[in-house]
Design a protein around this nucleic acid. Sequence first.
DNA 1: TTTAATATTGAAATAAATACAGTTTAAGAA
DNA 2: TTCTTAAACTGTATTTATTTCAATATTAAA
Lengths: 142, 142
Amino acid sequence: MVIKVEKFVSILKEHDLKVTPQRIAILRYLEIHRTHPSADTIYEDLKADNPSLSKTTIYNSLDMLKQHGLVKALRLGSTVRYDYSTNRHHHFWCRRCGKIMDITGDDPCWKDMVGDDHRVEEVHVYLKGVCSTCLKKKKEED
Amino acid sequence: MVIKVEKFVSILKEHDLKVTPQRIAILRYLEIHRTHPSADTIYEDLKADNPSLSKTTIYNSLDMLKQHGLVKALRLGSTVRYDYSTNRHHHFWCRRCGKIMDITGDDPCWKDMVGDDHRVEEVHVYLKGVCSTCLKKKKEED
DNA sequence: TTTAATATTGAAATAAATACAGTTTAAGAA
DNA sequence: TTCTTAAACTGTATTTATTTCAATATTAAA
Ligand SMILES: [Mn+2]
Ligand SMILES: [Mn+2]
Ligand SMILES: [Zn+2]
Ligand SMILES: [Zn+2]
């Protein structure tokens, strides 16, 4: 556990960010919970350990971590979710169970799609539907 | 002009929707303005002709038109934009001029990306960057 | 023209995010 | 270790987009 904390201390220091318990807690939370949680979920869960935690701090910290490439923000519909995995990948969002799953595999060639004219800086993609688990459950219900 | 209105009257009737001046105005606006306007932009522009227009009506109508597949809603970042083109296509959003442009061309095979396990019902994609026009302008400035 | 179901309106409520001012803390200097 | 100060944290207030709701108006059918 202490080792874990040291890891986040290093990460923050490498990016010349002040090391605060709040930032460590958020990074640690995101490394453990790979569920793409929302700012509010992170806040509610971390409040248990630190009752004086402010939601503003969650927003500020997530934003700063995002600026430094330490976390990624995804927007799925109207909700913003945070991801500790910062490599390029896309997501599948199950409308039934709400789970957000990583899509691995080849990424289509966006450059080809848009052509050379525009400069593509960000690729925003998510697929929505019903996940395999939910589909199986539905079958069992029949 | 009258002919145009008749067209939207037909469209609404075909979908068993009550024909109201507000709905006609919104459809007409979206057919003319292919800029992917927001609900608020539509509201502000239509209010000129109909000062008693309510923003709630804009939201209600857009939602109903969307349910019936007569318009499509896109979310780019935090803004929801509406599109009269309901065929599947994606968008390029220029962070400099704010323009939202249609991406034409081949659509990657999403089914392959996600596999057969999940049932894909919606594909949400947009690319963001700087459009060719803005890139040219930048060059001229140098 | 009458009627009833539905749509429109405007005000109030909601929710996510942001702004801000006062307080606290991290981290470097003494 | 203590002091110092810039930066971070907190809690409240505000903003913005959207939704809810009840009263009123309109559509479409009889
Ligand atoms: Mn992910
Ligand atoms: Mn379009
Ligand atoms: Zn599911
Ligand atoms: Zn541009």
